[in-house]
Amino acid sequence: MTHFVVVGIGADGWDGLSHHAQAELESAETIYGSGRQLALLPDRLAAQTIPWASPMSEHLDRLIAGDGDDTVHLLASGDPMFHGLAASVVRRVGPENVTVFGSSSSVSLAAARLGWDLARTGVRSLVTGDPEVLIPALTDGARLLVLSRGADSPGRIADLLRRKGFGSSSMTVLGDLGGVDESIVTGHAHSWDVGDIPALNIVALECAGPALSNAPGRPDADYAHDGQLTKQPIRALTVCALAPAEGQMLWDIGAGSGSIAIEWLRQTRSGRAIAFEADLVRAARIELNAREHGVADRLTIAGSVPGALGGAPDPDTIFAGGGLDADVLESCWAAIESGGRLVANAVTLETERLLVAAHAEYGGELIRLSLERAGALGTMTTWRPSLPVVQWVVTR
């Protein structure tokens, strides 16, 4: 099998590489990299240099699919294991088939220039995502380092900050870090109008705006919906019952507005979810809500159940709300493996009977949630009860 050697090279080029990394490239027969990276190598190298074809991902796929026994050298930016090429290759071929030589990452260089403590600084990437992925991290006083996709990323970030009430946030764009053309530009989101930005840049944000929490139970007004919305207090209790954990897959059955899946995703950085919703208008609304809450990159929208369940990735956790019937419940139970969790909510007597029977057969915990809100009664105030919700929580 092909062995891959990934060498991280910074804007300071050949002179910034360690002696071991230089020796590795001097012994190489073939080196792949971007045109910018290959241009940093000295002409005296004997290796054949091959620029990545566009799209790079497909070129890399073809290279990995090869069955040769040779060694192939790849150039990457900075630290290849930090949102980088080496991490992608390792996932595909295994660590035993990859050797990595790292340089300082752009994040490390940015922190050094700014005097920021990396342990207290959030890092987000727009290389494969849209600016909305920043939304869960936005809160007053937060410091973020954002890996840009290109020269237009700072402007798009500024637009998002203004739209979300963070226009007073400080923005510092650090370009070509470590190179002779290194640049630093500082301004504020509300007045950001900098046109000459290097394509290779990282954006440092000092957030100034509302103090926001990612705790479940966001205001109902934060969601576009047609009434099919798990209300705020029940939603908070339901997401807690689902026990979000890193790297897991959630199925949200009969997703409605998508609020349960969205708030479940906001509790993790690596969780993924599938929202099953038969109504196309509601499906479009779920996509809108997911984008506005910064989790659209980790949420897939599928069709009606139980038909769409068959081709879906196996779940670790399932939430069943809208459209629950005996067939759907049976399909959900069959899909959950040992240790998996199922949470189902019922507001009608028919669905409640299903959950009572399931509890009797499979165990778990059955609880009834009743909420009352203060409301006007003439010139006085009284309690207005909401529809009670019966919730079944079970670990298989």
Rank of each mutant, 00 (worst) to 15 (best):
I253W: 09
I253S: 07
A255S: 15
A255L: 12
G256L: 10
G256T: 13
I262P: 12
E263W: 11
W264N: 02
R266F: 09
Q267Y: 05
S270N: 04
S270Y: 03
G271D: 04
A275C: 13
A275S: 15
F276Y: 10
E277M: 09
E277L: 08
D279W: 11
L280I: 09
L280S: 14
V281W: 05
R282T: 02
R282S: 07
A284F: 06
R285N: 10
E287F: 03
E287T: 04
E287M: 13
L288Q: 15
L288C: 14
N289A: 15
A290I: 06
A290V: 10
R291T: 14
G294W: 10
G294D: 07
G294H: 13
V295E: 03
D297M: 03
R298M: 09
L299N: 13
T300V: 14
A302Q: 03
A302N: 02
A302F: 01
A302K: 02
G303E: 04
S304W: 03
S304E: 13
V305L: 06
P306E: 02
P306C: 08
G307N: 08
A308V: 01
L309G: 06
L309T: 00
L309C: 05
L309N: 02
G310C: 01
G310I: 01
A312E: 03
A312P: 07
D314W: 03
P315L: 09
P315A: 07
D316C: 04
D316A: 08
D316T: 04
I318G: 01
A320L: 14
G321M: 08
G322K: 12
G322M: 07
G323M: 12
G323Q: 10
G323I: 07
G323D: 01
L324D: 00
L324A: 05
D325Y: 05
